[in-house]
Simulated scan of single mutants.
Amino acid sequence: MTSPGSAGPSGPAVARVLLEIGAVLMRPKDPFILTSGRASPVYVDCRKVIGYPRARMLITGHAIEAIWREIGVESLDVIAGGETAGIPYAAWIADKLGLPMAYIRKKPKGFGRNAQIEGVLPEGARTLLVEDLATDGGSKLNFINAIRNAGGKVSHALVVFHYGIFPQALDDLKAQGVTLIGLATWWDVLQVAGDLGHLSAEEAKDVRSFLENPEAWSAARGGKNPASKE
């Protein structure tokens, strides 16, 4: 049975390989504090994939399939990776598709050409933004604006891992005319971790309570709400 926030066909396979290489950490009793300030019982480090050739081959394969399925490879001119974790994924995907690659800095480098985008991005190029993961979608908007300011077109962003629990992320991207494609979500990880016996029933219940109401779970453990005015 597909989980409420499953990424779809690729979800269980990508979730399993992330679990296998130790890229997924679960600490319901000792929460992580995310960049947003939220407390979380789970954390994923997609950067770890670069050290596992078979893992990156599998994940890249699923990314290519998702592109074929959701976009169509003849509808793209450039693959662009976001600094820094999106760069290797963009390189692997661009190589497999035989497409030019670019990468996008979080902000212009401040000297020389003062460039924010490096590589190839012709005027009007139909560009796929690639990142390692998406939480609430904020950093994606920065990269999307950079692509458009440079004359590129972008209507899709692909991530290896989408938290799948912050609907506002999808709404914000949709408002900018961008569809988010995620290969796996926390719902996929929870399902696979349970199947493999990586979580006790109590731990699984705690993680599920976070996924169903992340803001309340975080607030109860001292985390911040990024949307708060305080």
Rank of each mutant, 00 (worst) to 15 (best):
E123R: 14
Y52T: 05
W217T: 03
K96I: 03
G223W: 00
K229L: 13
H198N: 11
L58D: 09
R27S: 12
Y163L: 04
K205H: 07
R54E: 15
Y103P: 02
L25R: 15
S36Y: 02
L133T: 10
L211Q: 03
R47L: 07
I144G: 03
M26W: 04
P214H: 07
D30R: 11
S228N: 08
T127R: 05
V14C: 00
G194H: 01
P167F: 01
K107S: 15
G22P: 08
K29T: 14
L25W: 06
K106Y: 05
E212K: 11
L58R: 10
G72I: 08
E74G: 08
P100G: 11
K224R: 15
A115R: 11
P122N: 13
G151K: 09
D171M: 07
G177E: 09
T179Q: 11
F210A: 04
R27N: 15
E202K: 13
A23V: 04
Y89M: 14
L99C: 12
H198P: 00
V120M: 13
S6W: 00
G164W: 01
G72H: 09
D95P: 01
V160F: 06
E83R: 10
W92S: 12
R105V: 10
D30N: 13
T179R: 15
G138V: 08
G194T: 07
E215M: 15
T60R: 14
T179Y: 02
K229Y: 09
R27M: 13
M26F: 09
L170G: 04
V154S: 05
T84K: 12
Q116D: 07
A13Q: 08
A150L: 12
I79K: 07
D206M: 11
G119F: 02
A175C: 08
D95R: 13
L196Y: 04
W68F: 13
G177S: 11
S218M: 09
I21D: 03
P88D: 11
R105T: 08
W92K: 05
P53H: 09
T2K: 12
G112Q: 06
N225T: 08
I59P: 00
I79T: 06
R56V: 12
P53E: 10
